[in-house]
């Protein structure tokens, strides 16, 4: 599904990813862990096509297509979803209107019928329950006046509605209390299937207790320095990141 080959990328002329290689197959959940500054968020942003991030060399294929050549919206329509670390507030753009426009853009791209207002509301209500978001939120501006936890749950709600093939969670767990963490994990678990892949980017292991990964990778200095199964996350929690960084030097 996702093939990242020897990727070098950065922002404002500063190189952050230095030869990252990763392969994600359909149905797999991969966790990317690493200390601050290791390039975790850069990876997420490069995959989603955030402005200012520049790829200097390497390749990213999504279902065999060159992802880096696509504008941001096309990546989304192809089925890549980024749950953002800091979802922005957009006053004046109605949440439900925005999400319906997004879903219909995605459906049109896939050759599916667009949903009318009623069909969309039905779908939205169902998914809202999944993340325990109150319907009142839907008629506000996008993320307007949402608490930190509500913003993260809104990201997962949008993900559930858009039904992406590859979901990238960029530190979705940061700043969440345990209840919100559980809700977020359940939302993602509900999406898990043979056709869906998830890339969980996180600093801590706690989200991975609820959202159990198939693979764990440790990112340091812009490259994956260690890969393993879910037990690697626990090992990291006990030994800290110094352990892998030292291991890399040795």
């Amino acid at each position: 599904m996702l093939e990242i080959k020897d990727l070098y990328a950065g922002i404002d002329g500063k190189e952050i990813l230095r030869g990252l290689t990763l392969s994600v197959q359909p149905g797999e959940v991969h966790a990317i862990m690493g200390p601050n500054g290791s390039g975790k968020s850069t990876l997420a942003n490069v995959l989603a096509g955030r402005p200012r991030y520049e790829v200097t060399s390497g390749e990213v294929l999504f279902e065999g297509k060159n992802l880096l050549d696509m504008p941001t919206e096309e990546r989304a329509r192809e089925g890549v979803f980024l749950a953002m670390q800091y979802p922005v507030e957009i006053a004046g753009v109605n949440n439900i209107y925005f999400l319906k426009a997004a879903l219909n853009a995605v459906r049109k791209h896939r050759g599916d019928e667009e949903l009318d207002a009623l069909e969309f509301l039905q779908l939205a209500r169902e998914k809202m329950k999944l993340v325990e978001l109150d319907e009142a939120f839907m008629n506000r501006g996008v993320n307007e006046g949402f608490s930190g936890g509500e913003k993260k749950r809104n990201e997962i709600f949008q993900m559930a509605v858009l039904d992406p093939k590859l979901a990238i969670l960029d530190e979705t767990d940061s700043g969440l209390d345990i209840d919100a963490l559980r809700i977020v994990a359940e939302g993602v678990n509900a999406l898990r299937s043979e056709a869906h892949s998830v890339l969980v980017i996180t600093h801590y292991q706690r989200l991975l207790r609820y959202l159990v990964p198939d693979f764990v990778h440790v990112l340091a200095n812009g490259r994956i320095v260690k890969s393993g199964g879910k037990e690697l996350a626990e090992e990291l929690e006990q030994k800290g990141y110094d352990w892998v960084e030292t291991a890399e030097v040795a």
């Binding site: 941001t72 919206e73 989304a76 980024l82 922005v88 753009v93």
Partner: peptide, 12 residues
């Protein structure tokens, strides 16, 4: 905000 909307599939 522009990036956010586009990242959900809405054209520029």
């Amino acid at each position: 905000p522009l990036f956010y909307l586009r990242s959900r599939g809405i054209g520029e």
